[in-house]
């Protein structure tokens, strides 16, 4: 018990890094994902081709590789980022691609008649997207987004590769220093607590949208 209290502060400071990567990635990638998703359903082909290439690159290569590339590779072409912004940059780029595909699916499942009835009611395109399409898409995509959100908590552990001190790294350091598995068990418990809270929040979100069918 004493040992746990002794290592807990370092684990919690690691958890803070994990949460901050998680939070800022979501804040950036969700709106960007919606915009890229809209782009993927647009009729302008060259634009769509570029976005598809981007999605393919981001989903087709490991996030770990992308992290390494942003932090160690980009400086070679004169684009240097600090560790933390580099991690956020790679995470947002990667998660935007996944969210974009989810939003694309949601957008395509909206009945074209909804756009038409908005059009004869004289709503502009953006009013239609904001007031008619987005609320319906959000309800449809929530379960899939939730999946990615849970994944993001665990994926954030990849930042150790560019030397950021997150939760997993804090546990690893303690384990190799003190030759005990206790820190890693604690790390597991903290991850489980975080995902439990998220699962609860996501379920509340889904319930919030259950007032209509």
């Amino acid at each position: 018990m004493e040992y746990i209290l002794q290592i807990l502060p370092s684990l919690l400071s690691g958890a803070r890094m994990t949460l901050s990567i998680f939070f800022w990635t979501l804040l950036g990638a969700l709106p960007l994902g919606l915009i890229v998703g809209l782009g993927l359903t647009s009729r302008f082909r060259p634009f769509k081709a570029v976005l598809r290439l981007y999605v393919w690159l981001m989903r087709g290569t490991p996030l770990l590789l992308q992290l390494i590339f942003v932090f160690y590779g980009l400086p070679m072409i004169g684009f240097t980022l600090e560790r933390y912004p580099a991690a956020l940059f790679a995470f947002i780029l990667n998660y935007t691609a996944y969210f974009a595909e989810i939003f694309r699916g949601g957008l395509q499942s909206i009945d074209p008649g909804q756009y038409e009835s908005a059009k004869v009611l004289r709503l502009t395109y953006w009013q239609t997207i904001r007031k008619i399409v987005t609320p319906q898409v959000v309800k449809i995509v929530l379960p899939s987004i939730g999946n990615e959100v849970i994944n993001l908590v665990k994926d954030s552990s990849l930042v150790y590769v560019i030397g950021l001190g997150d939760l997993l790294r804090a546990g690893n350091v303690a384990t190799s220093r003190d030759v005990t598995l206790v820190p890693l068990v604690l790390v597991g418990i903290i991850y489980l607590l975080m995902t439990a809270v998220l699962t609860f929040v996501l379920r509340k979100c889904e319930q919030h949208y259950s007032y209509w069918k």
Binding site: Q114, S117, I132, Q136, K139, W212
Partner: peptide
């Protein structure tokens, strides 16, 4: 004004 065959009310 148009009343569509399947009405196309906004479900939300």
């Amino acid at each position: 004004g148009v009343v569509f065959q399947d009405f196309q009310l906004f479900p939300h």
